[in-house]
Design a protein around this nucleic acid. Sequence first.
DNA 1: TTTAGCACTCAATAGAGTAGAGTGCTAACA
DNA 2: TGTTAGCACTCTACTCTATTGAGTGCTAAA
Lengths: 346, 346
Amino acid sequence: MDDRKQKVLLAIVHDYIKTAEPVGSRTIARKYQLGVSPATIRNEMSDLEEQGFIEQPYTSAGRIPSERGYRYYVDFLMRKQELSKEEEELIRREYEVKVRDVGQVIQKTGQLLSQLTHYTAMVLPPRIGISNIKHIQIVYMHQSQAMVIAVMDNGTVQHRLIEIPESITALDMETISKVLNAKLQGQAMKSIKLTLIKDIYYELARHRNLLDLVMELVQESLTLEFEDKIYLGGVFNMLNQPEFRNVEKIKTMLSIMEQEKLLCDLLEGGAGDEGVTVRIGGEIDQLDIKECSMITAPYSIRGRKMGFIGVLGPTRMEYAKVISVVDYMTKHLSQTLEQMIRGRKK
Amino acid sequence: MDDRKQKVLLAIVHDYIKTAEPVGSRTIARKYQLGVSPATIRNEMSDLEEQGFIEQPYTSAGRIPSERGYRYYVDFLMRKQELSKEEEELIRREYEVKVRDVGQVIQKTGQLLSQLTHYTAMVLPPRIGISNIKHIQIVYMHQSQAMVIAVMDNGTVQHRLIEIPESITALDMETISKVLNAKLQGQAMKSIKLTLIKDIYYELARHRNLLDLVMELVQESLTLEFEDKIYLGGVFNMLNQPEFRNVEKIKTMLSIMEQEKLLCDLLEGGAGDEGVTVRIGGEIDQLDIKECSMITAPYSIRGRKMGFIGVLGPTRMEYAKVISVVDYMTKHLSQTLEQMIRGRKK
DNA sequence: TTTAGCACTCAATAGAGTAGAGTGCTAACA
DNA sequence: TGTTAGCACTCTACTCTATTGAGTGCTAAA
């Protein structure tokens, strides 16, 4: 692909991202100084179309980038775009106030992502399956009920009400808490194996009843990993995009947004181990939202991948901008979380 | 208002609720056996319009109920509509599985509400401000950080990471936990007064530093009451309503849905102390969502009002149906929550 | 290789006409 | 006096038909 063709493609992508209207040869000649006439540009466009980088919605309309065109743009033509001073300032300021626990950080991240990009943001909170138990506590509520609380070292807290046999006293529970703490502290939810459970059983044979219930909680927390909550921000930003002028599209869009499970898969599915991943249109294979692109990236705490953040927008997305925002935010998020949970030992 | 006028109004309300089209005199004569000709009905309609119960979108269209018309319908004409056996069965079944903690119950309630009514459901979880502290625990995370956990007797758990001076040991914290529990157990967050705090201060003069932070949490939990989370269900149900054919309306609608604070006010604002409240159109004064009605009701645990549930739909709403669903759900919700937190002493 | 010119295509817009639902009025009827 | 049939009138929604304009592709000349 020669230099001038690249320039033409770049012009088409830029203009279409900005206006959402098919771009004609004349517009390019007028707005982007290439030093050639519209006729020449038409010839180039004809070639580009043959190679599959651009397409025509109908005969005698302007051209729009194809998915392949966007891909080429993202891979070769796009120039990196740093965040502005104001934006960085905004992020810094927002993270400073009122973010006391992990949940709030996650939520704020979603908010910022959507605010900065004007698209829909998705954030997957730190997965508990791969974090370690810091403390387990059983709180007596009344004669047939107790609350099991597990504090994880990523700063989250799991809790559940359980039924207990009436024969068990508050004192019993304290004993159980102690043993559980001794055995489970520092263990990852995932790594709690049968041997360990047997070990605890042995030590607490007397309290087998209660123990069954507690272990059930532990087990369930593990499965919870897969039905994790996901934080969305700016869903209705998407409605400002001209591609959502028609109500049917909005409906499919929103019904997708209500399926948390699907979104989690979407977010986890494509992202690589490190760095920002861009998926354009059909490259998101799980789903048939047409004309959408996703930009995702994992964030980590102390080098361990803990979750994902992502932005969903139309294929006609401001890739350069969104990529740098996502990149910047993962780093900032990792940093904020690390600061918050400073105590973690490697 | 004489009997026949009521019948005509009822016919108009029913038909408009069903079809979302202005209702003409002929339609009424055909579909609702009133035993009179369209001309007579026209005369009645003319009167009804003069009295403000119905209106015409434009000359020579059919009539639609005015807000006053809906109000009259709800107050005097509407017949109570019981839930079907299938619906009751559905509710029972859904509450049985996988509702282990209060959060899940709340979420499930929202889901059911929207599923049964086909409108948007909102649920305000039990307010912590008016619930009592069951247990306070401080968990040591590492040398400069601790997690404060408060278990409330309504089955919710509050938690927060706090910074602690390095001089404080894990043992210190256990002492503090003990004293806090002794003093705060059974107290409502709201009722924690200065005298009580002084009392604790006195007893724990040595640990004043840490105490400051813990009390701050308690204080903040109190303010949290006002920025409570709200659970929404079936937001996109609304899009199936024909009044949301145009995109602008969808946008205002959704942007309202994203403002949690506003929704909480909305939910709390109009509801009375007991029973179902219906607000029609302009009667929802906080807001300028036009053409919407809200049906709300408080739910309680052991006779104490703990939160609200509500349904938001177009003014052209199936009032009879929604009212009975909301009514039924508050009762069922109260019951489920009471069962779950059985231990509460009056 | 580039450019100007020109015929052709197609969506979007605007206008005109038509159909249909519904009203209000009047006069006749029970 | 209340009810009804008849009829002229109103207004929206829909269809059909130009018209406009942006844009292309091709050809021939520079």
